[in-house]
Design a protein around this nucleic acid. Structure first.
Length: 482
RNA sequence: GCCUUGGUAGCUCAGUGGCCAGAGCGGCACCCUUGUAAGGUGUUGGCCGCGGGUUCGAAUCCCGCCCGAGGCUCCA
């Protein structure tokens, strides 16, 4: 009875069990160090990340800080009525997620990615997919419809490859970039692997493939996308000090393409963890990943890109070359930001680092659900607050019109991490400049509304915008948590 | 999936065999009309995760299940 369930465990999962890795550190001068010869002084996070990967030291007993934060900020919450690892997003969380999705998508558009949309589920009987399932180390959700079994996609590869299979492609079209923001990708991870927003069973992931003519073109494109991923992470709010780079490859690739690997390390500007395999177990010959190290010293991959040498043939994707022959391409698989949920996890964990250091935590300004809070001293000044709010354009401004003391309203605004707070009362009547309480600053700063708006736009200018995701008046807001 | 650990009011938690199960916060009502991190009074909140068992008696002990966290493992 028990083996009737016949879990779909892929060959890749089994293969991984016998996978032998050799570990090194590559420094920015291009020197490859044996793992235990490298001096990690000044590279704390790399040491933690490497320890995590190499020594498998993962003993932790605390709740990750972002789990409390995602709830107390009313962003995201568990959904007991769903399968574990499938979360609910409250209005503020949904807004943040939507902005991140829009931002990443705009960056991929700029890069040249053509956005498509593909189905969430695929037949397990499809011969190509069947063989691909066996090659990717992920457990699937399956569902039945009539007599056919379907699996929920764990990436956008299927849909995009099937599109590419049916397309007529000339070498002149290459590299050909196809993109989808998958809401969602599904991976039925083992129960104990799920951790807050860090690891989920359904997650939102940008997936951009580049179909390339040959290894040379693939390598060129690989560098472009490395830079793209760095830029995307930077835009989201992670700089190079926030993540560690790993490059994993078969030894042959290293022997023949050291320059490329060293270029990436140089671009990263910090020593890099190198993992090498003598044989190719996966569908790719090289893969890099940018890893965030959190408050519990846990590492997890954000952006990643792989050079796939297998699926062009498996999916029978062809292009017509200059000489009239049809060829299978190399395919790059990139997630320039990693999962959007994991980005939120990273931002919250970063805020938790600040709290530890005694710095007021905050979100990047372009993601703050409220950017400016206006606090009327009493009901009498609510119209004045309205007037100030109307002076703003494309800034998220709300008004705390609750029947509470000013002290209480300030405190609540601080607990929401609101970057700018303006108290309005008799003193402010008819002023051109208001004392603005700036998060992280000791004393209020006098400024006009237009200069505050400029100040905000100077930081958020190139990012997408959405209005306040909940009612403008705090009195009208329900409490989703607490 | 296996192992460890937890689940008590909307939230955070106290209560570990015995009267009608408690606190703070929140919500609601009233008072105050507020000046830069919690104003006051009153009041409302509970299948003590779910199901079964032991017992004169179960939030408390036992078994199963569900859900959270952590580990094995894995990854975006």
């Amino acid at each position: 009875m028990s083996e009737k369930k016949e879990e779909v465990v892929s060959e890749a999962l089994k293969a991984e069990e016998q996978l032998r890795s050799q570990w090194y550190i590559l420094d920015t001068d291009g020197k490859l160090w044996e793992f235990d010869q490298f001096d990690f002084k000044g590279h704390d996070n790399l040491r933690k990340f490497s320890g995590y990967e190499y020594e498998k030291d993962r003993t932790v007993t605390r709740t990750p800080p972002h789990v409390d934060l995602m709830r107390s900020l009313e962003l995201v919450d568990y959904e007991p009525a769903s399968d574990p690892g499938n979360f609910r997003y409250y209005p503020k969380g949904r807004m943040i997620k939507a902005l991140l999705e829009e931002y990443v998508t705009s960056m991929v558009h700029e890069y040249g990615g053509m956005e498509v949309e593909t189905p969430l589920m695929y037949s397990m009987e499809h011969p190509t997919l069947k063989s691909y399932l066996n090659r990717f180390p992920a457990r699937q959700y399956t569902i039945e419809s009539d007599d056919t079994r379907y699996f929920m996609r764990f990436a956008a590869c299927f849909g995009q490859f099937l599109i590419a299979h049916d397309a007529t492609i000339s070498y002149k079209n290459l590299p050909l970039k196809i993109y989808e923001m998958t809401r969602y990708s599904f991976r039925r991870e083992q129960r104990g692997e799920l951790t807050g927003l860090r690891r989920l069973r359904s997650f939102t992931m940008p997936d951009v493939h580049a179909i390339c003519r040959d290894l040379e073109q693939a390598k060129e494109e690989y560098k472009v996308r490395f830079k793209l991923s760095q830029d995307v992470l930077q835009g989201i709010g992670f700089d190079k000090s926030d993540y560690e780079l790993a490059i994993r490859m078969v030894r042959d690739f290293w022997d023949e393409n050291q320059d490329l690997v060293k270029d990436l390390a140089k671009e990263h500007g910090k020593p890099v963890l190198i993992e090498m395999w003598n044989e190719r177990f996966f569908y790719y010959i090289v893969k890099w990943d940018m890893n965030f190290v959190d408050n519990l010293d846990k590492a997890s991959a954000l952006a990643t890109d792989q050079i796939d040498v297998e699926n062009g043939e498996r999916y029978d994707i062809k292009y017509m070359d200059e000489d009239g022959s049809t060829k299978h391409p190399y395919i790059l698989h990139c997630s320039p930001s990693g999962a959007i949920e994991r980005d939120i996890y990273g931002l919250l964990e970063k805020a938790a680092f600040d709290m530890k250091k005694g710095i007021k935590p905050s979100l990047p300004l372009w993601l703050a659900p409220t950017q400016v809070r206006i606090i009327p001293v009493s009901h009498e000044y609510t119209p004045a607050a309205d007037k100030i709010r109307e002076e703003f354009n494309k800034v998220r401004v709300d008004i705390d019109n609750r029947d509470e003391t000013v002290g209480k309203k300030i405190r609540d605004a601080e607990k929401e991490w609101i970057p700018y707070i303006i108290v309005v009362g008799e003193k402010e009547a008819g002023l051109n400049e208001y004392p603005v309480r700036v998060r992280g600053q000791k004393n209020p700063e006098k400024m006009s509304i237009s200069s505050l708006q400029e100040k905000i736009h100077a930081v958020t200018g190139d990012k997408p915008y959405r209005p306040v995701p909940v009612p403008i008046y705090l009195q009208q807001r329900p409490k989703f948590v607490g």
